[in-house]
Amino acid sequence: MNCRDFDRIWNQSLDADRPGASPGPAWPSLERDLREHAESCPSCRVRHHRFETLRQALDAWTGRPQLRPAPSPGSADRIIAALVRPEPARGGRRRIVRPRVAAFALASAAAAGLAVVGPRLLEPKPTTDAPASSAAPASPSLKRGLLGAAVGDATAASWELALLASEPAARLGKEMIDASFDADADADADLFPPADTPTATDVPVLDADSFSPDLINQMGGLLAEGVRPLSTSARRAFGFLRAPNTEKPQRPVRPSAGKGA
């Protein structure tokens, strides 16, 4: 017998100690082998004594059913009463608003809007005395239609993405996009029908004259001030909305100091 066999046979011995189990005819010789190995192997001798103690404790433990914990009286009635109650409806996963996902959805919505608006924001406003461009300008209705389609696509994609994360975030994101444009009647909108959005409203079309950065500033301000349910991460993500600076900052003027004076 080696040390591995020693453990295995001890386990069989403890298995056989269960109520109703029979040790088998070979058991006396196996027990003798265990003792002989324990006497010859110092480490197994320690284990042998430990397992003997465990066996005795197991005998005492399994022989005291009166001390086993019992359920409180009336538990059966409570179970029956609970059975009568209707089972809670399954299906339809609970929508959990996770701050990071909501922030991401909101950021996506805003980014989609700004991707369209941004270049216009950064463009200097044409002055009346500027020379007219020699290139033939595209038709305003064509421009407007293309832009409307792009905004519609971005809105629909943002809406789908945001719906996955959070309905409130989705609604807010869409409002941000909608609020960035003047959704007044557009005579040419029927040339490029807007993408299908869940609200079935007309896709807002960019009108540079009616675009109101104040709305974005206001929204960004609210976000930065901690409007719920946005997290700190979301507020940080939308911090850039607070004051879109379209002008290049001027380098501070330093008082001139003579070198090597």
């Binding site: 386990n11 004594h49 430990r50 103690t53 465990l54 404790a57």
Partner: peptide
């Protein structure tokens, strides 16, 4: 079983 046997012995439980 090994853990229980060690635990019992370490707490001074002897057969």
């Amino acid at each position: 079983r090994v853990e229980l046997a060690e635990e019992l012995t370490s707490r001074g439980v002897h057969r």
